[in-house]
């Protein structure tokens, strides 16, 4: 069963329809890609799914349970975590304390074994931040700052993880390592949803891909199917206007 189900979701800003009847599924143990040109509605979709924006129509289910009317905090407690395209780190805190805030939050609603300090160190090791633990997050390059957001999101032990352009700001080597990390996270049973402009990473890491344009899903399938989809090529290369209708 899909961990995250989005059904017929619509978001309007005044007269502009940012997300238009989108449905998608993200399954446990898999990386689901979400691609599309700038302004396609990817980040808006994440904001609605995580509860930061209201929706005008449609439903969101986490593990089969309707969370459409829940506030972001309750969704998080039900296993939803995310990172942000425009970084939302806690600049007054060190790398370690950024992760620690999330660990403490998790422990306020769930009994986990071990101490919070150990859990924090373990998470930082997992995303490769141990050496930077005492740095101020403001001093980090974007690529590493994104890892802090990932570590923070993982600290809530999510079942569904939304990643908004996690590889932007990383160099090639970091992106390759990151692809491996994504695989590990998915393998631990998490449903990962990835918004990414690095098509190479999406094709390598994803099991299933949705393509969004003008707020609608214009194609979905395996990376191989998407690569040859005419509507997708048209949306990206701008040939033909038929796909927009």
């Amino acid at each position: 069963m899909a961990r995250l189900e989005v059904r017929d979701l619509t978001v309007r800003y005044g007269g502009h329809v940012a997300v238009d009847g989108v449905s998608l599924d993200a399954e446990a143990g898999r990386v689901t890609g979400l691609i599309g040109p700038n302004g396609a509605g990817k980040t808006t979709l994440f904001n609605v799914v995580s509860g930061l924006l209201p929706t005008q129509r449609g439903k969101i289910f986490l593990d089969g349970r309707d969370v459409t009317r829940m506030n972001p905090s309750r969704r998080a407690r039900r296993g939803l975590a995310r990172t942000f395209q425009r970084l939302e780190l806690f600049s007054m805190l060190s790398v370690r304390d950024n992760v620690r805030v999330a660990v403490d939050s998790r422990r306020s609603w769930s009994r986990d074994p071990g101490t919070a300090a150990d859990a924090t160190e373990e998470l930082m090791g997992r995303v490769g931040l141990t050496e930077l633990a005492d740095e101020r997050v403001d001093a980090l390059p974007t690529g590493q700052a994104r890892l802090v957001e990932l570590g923070r999101a993982l600290a809530t032990r999510p079942t569904v993880l939304l990643l908004d352009e996690p590889a932007s700001g990383q160099d090639d080597q970091e992106t390759r390592a990151f692809g491996g990390l994504l695989g590990e996270i998915a393998a631990s049973g998490v449903a990962v949803v990835l918004v990414e402009h690095d098509v190479g990473l999406v094709m390598r890491a994803c099991d299933h891909v949705y393509v969004l344009d003008f707020g609608r899903v214009i194609a979905s399938g395996t990376p191989e199917e998407i690569r040859h989809d005419e509507a997708v090529l048209a949306a990206y290369l701008g040939t033909g206007v038929g796909v927009r209708t």
Partner: peptide
């Protein structure tokens, strides 16, 4: 832990909410 949450909240309420705070 409470103090760290306060400081975090000052920086980004949105991020705090998505962490279940």
């Amino acid at each position: 832990a409470f103090g760290r949450i306060l400081v975090a909240m000052k920086d980004s309420e949105a991020a705090c909410a998505t962490l279940g705070i």
